[in-house]
Amino acid sequence: MNLGLASGLSGGVTRLKRSWPVLLLIMLLMLLATPAMAQQGMSAVTVTTNADGSQEYSLTLQVLALMTALSFLPAIVIMMTSFTRIIIVLSILRQAMGLQQSPNNQVLIGISLFLSFFIMSPVLDKVNETALQPYLAEEITSKEALSFAELPIRDFMLSQTRVKDLETFLNIANIQVDNEAEVPLRVIIPAFVTSELKTAFQIGFMLFLPFLVIDLVVASILMAMGMMMLSPMIISLPFKLMLFVLVDGWSLIMGTLANSFGLGAG
């Protein structure tokens, strides 16, 4: 069993290494997403010579818009991947165990990022094969590369989105579609985020129950012994940590989160 787990992790690490170049796709294609700039060779900086011989420099509106869009890039990447579900579950787990600062936020974010890369590696591989590599080989244009890169991510989000949430945002946008292929991305993203929040809180609730039982048992014992001034959290914390370690909690949590996306998602 340990050999199978090691083999699975080794395969995930291999896919993760192959997927690193895909991270360059978003930045590269964002800079080339405007067809007018790519096809007409529009310069990024305009130089104007005044009558007195002085020069003025100004940025084109397209470049200004792209630079503004880059500030939203982290939020876009985070909300369109498995990161949201993972970081919420880990935060609820820390709260359930009664730990305020351990693991700290940097550790939780790091775990969530690398686990997200592990889960999203099939999607990133498809983006790399269908969009990034053909674009770098100059076989397709930047606009076509964006369209091809959207398909695997779109399929991943649809596979994790509840039909009810999708219908809710379709009704809000007053859009009628015959099949999932016609659903616009501006509807899929908020529906996907809503589904991820619901799923994360469901998993977090199930994680909270055993720790809540320990807190109730310890509080009842302290009340029976007349130690009402002693905080039950102080006494129950070692027992919760011991329970979490004995059941190999971290492995169970990581495995549950990965399996909740279906290992071959995307």
Rank of each mutant, 00 (worst) to 15 (best):
P21C: 14
L25Q: 07
L25M: 09
M27G: 15
M27C: 10
M27N: 06
L28V: 11
M30C: 12
L31N: 10
L32I: 04
L32R: 00
A33Q: 15
T34F: 09
T34S: 13
T34I: 13
P35H: 01
A36V: 13
M37E: 10
A38F: 07
A38Y: 01
Q39S: 12
Q39K: 09
G41W: 05
G41A: 05
M42H: 05
V45Y: 03
T46S: 15
T49M: 10
A51Q: 00
D52E: 00
G53W: 02
S54H: 06
E56R: 14
Y57I: 10
Y57W: 14
Y57Q: 12
Y57F: 15
Y57V: 14
Y57P: 01
S58L: 09
L59V: 10
L59G: 02
L61D: 10
Q62G: 06
Q62M: 11
A65D: 07
M67C: 13
M67P: 06
M67G: 14
T68P: 00
T68E: 04
A69H: 03
A69M: 13
A69K: 03
A69S: 14
S71N: 13
S71R: 12
L73N: 07
L73W: 10
A75E: 15
A75S: 11
I76D: 03
V77K: 04
V77W: 06
V77T: 04
M79T: 15
M80H: 05
M80A: 12
M80N: 12
T81G: 05
S82Q: 03
F83M: 00
T84H: 06
R85W: 00
I86H: 04
I86G: 00
I87Y: 13
I87C: 13
I88M: 00
V89R: 01
L90A: 08
S91Q: 13
I92G: 09
I92W: 06
L93P: 04
L93C: 07
L93R: 02
R94K: 09
R94E: 06
Q95W: 09
Q95E: 12
Q95N: 15
A96R: 05
A96W: 05
M97C: 08
G98T: 06
G98V: 07
G98W: 07
L99Q: 13
Q101R: 07
Q101A: 10
S102H: 13
S102Y: 11
P103Y: 01
N104A: 03
N105P: 04
Q106Y: 15
V107Y: 04
V107Q: 06
I109L: 15
G110H: 03
I111R: 01
I111D: 02
I111N: 03
S112I: 00
S112K: 07
L113Q: 04
F114Q: 04
F114L: 12
L115E: 11
L115N: 04
L115D: 06
S116Y: 01
F117S: 06
F117P: 03
F118L: 14
I119T: 02
I119W: 00
I119A: 09
M120F: 07
S121G: 00
S121T: 03
P122Q: 05
D125P: 05
K126N: 12
K126Q: 14
V127I: 13
N128M: 08
N128T: 02
A131S: 14
A131Y: 11
L132T: 05
